[in-house]
Nucleic acid binder design. Structure first.
Lengths: 209, 209
DNA sequence: CCCTGTGAACCTGTTCACAGCG
DNA sequence: CGCTGTGAACAGGTTCACAGGG
């Protein structure tokens, strides 16, 4: 019934709204208006309303949005109303740090296992999970019905690793490798290039502004 | 002479182009056409040409772009043709991993020091730098003329830390804290919300597509 | 003839502004 | 009367398409 002309920037802002709503809930705030939310997040009130409007009608005219209700709706929309299993591939420095990062769990993501090819890393525990040989990846992915993977391998092997993940049934990759992945349309990729963000800042401060 | 109506997505793609060009250079490739570059990076050829066109005329009709030349131009534009000093604040798990991450150095960024408030962390070395008390931050920033900071502190103290950085003369913040920073227009912020990217993937695979 | 550089057309996403509900 | 929900107007970016240079 509903087509899907949802701007992807709007989807990304949903996480932003959710994050702030969770904080408001922790502070005991019961309801919030679009302009308050907007102000805290450096967006416009119309944008908040429009973004939420793509998914339903969650607010009450004259009142605003019920914080608890909106949090639940957003989690449902994002698919994090249930625990989402995730694996991590590449237990180098960055990979091991991500394994210890508590932010994922707080948001409903459960790291079930890590993988690497280096014998020195395999068998060790990092954070709450063990590092396995990549050969075990397909069976573990199947067993835990994992759909998302965090990719933290060197750029040189990023593409082949992504292909392997696709073959194992992974549907989404959070890619920290500084490489562009070429994948089928049914495999979603979110690239995170840490150095690129610093370059952007370097540009912005180096010139005008 | 040139106004500055440069789309910020275009600036972000510059890093992408640079990354691929560096790889081509390593492979010994001398020149490249916009459509080849485009194909490797999942963008259109027109986009590549238009993006580069905002900054000058770097190509040769009938030939393409000289790889070495374009790399130098892009580094100059991004400001990474010289070493750029960076500090890191917050030596938690994520912070320490970023200190060890080699990708920054490879791109011309030099981490000169890390800072924290926890006595247990201060005085230790992580990667190539030492962890200092934040009280030493202003003097170190001044001494090394640091303009960029990586912020990896807990969300609760992100804003106050950002204010402190602004006061110390920092001009750009790479923000890993899951909090929206409110800063003056002359302080650039690049937010990196790791959990948000996973949520986006969760959304994309949970629905259509 | 190949490939760049670029105005013009197009399109996606943002902001405006107001009708309508509580 | 306050605040949402939303069509309509607007703006920013992307793609097209072609003129022009090597």
């Amino acid at each position: 019934m509903n087509a899907q002309p949802i701007p992807s920037p709007a989807v990304r802002r949903l996480s932003l709204y959710l994050r702030h709503l969770e904080q408001l809930a922790a502070e005991g705030v019961k309801s919030v208006a679009s302009n308050e939310l907007a102000e805290s997040l450096n967006v416009t009130a119309a944008q908040v309303r429009k973004d939420l409007g793509y998914f339903g009608q969650f607010g009450r005219p004259g009142v605003g949005y019920r914080v608890r209700v909106l949090i639940e709706e957003l989690r449902r929309i994002l698919g994090t109303d249930r625990t989402v299993n995730v694996i991590l591939v590449g237990a180098g420095d960055l990979g091991r740090a991500l394994l210890r990062y508590k932010g994922f769990r707080r948001k409903g993501f459960n790291l079930v296992a890590a993988f690497d090819v280096a014998p020195g890393k395999i068998g060790r525990a990092v954070g709450t999970v063990n590092v396995h040989n990549v050969s075990e990846l397909p069976s573990i992915v199947r067993r835990h019905k994992v759909k998302l993977a965090v990719l933290a391998v060197p750029a040189e092997v990023a593409q082949e690793t992504a292909d392997m993940l696709a073959a194992a049934g992974i549907r989404g990759i959070l890619n920290f490798a500084p490489a562009t992945l070429h994948t089928d349309a049914d495999l979603a990729v979110a690239p995170v290039d840490l150095a690129a963000h610093l370059e952007e800042l370097s540009f912005r401060i180096g010139h005008h502004l």
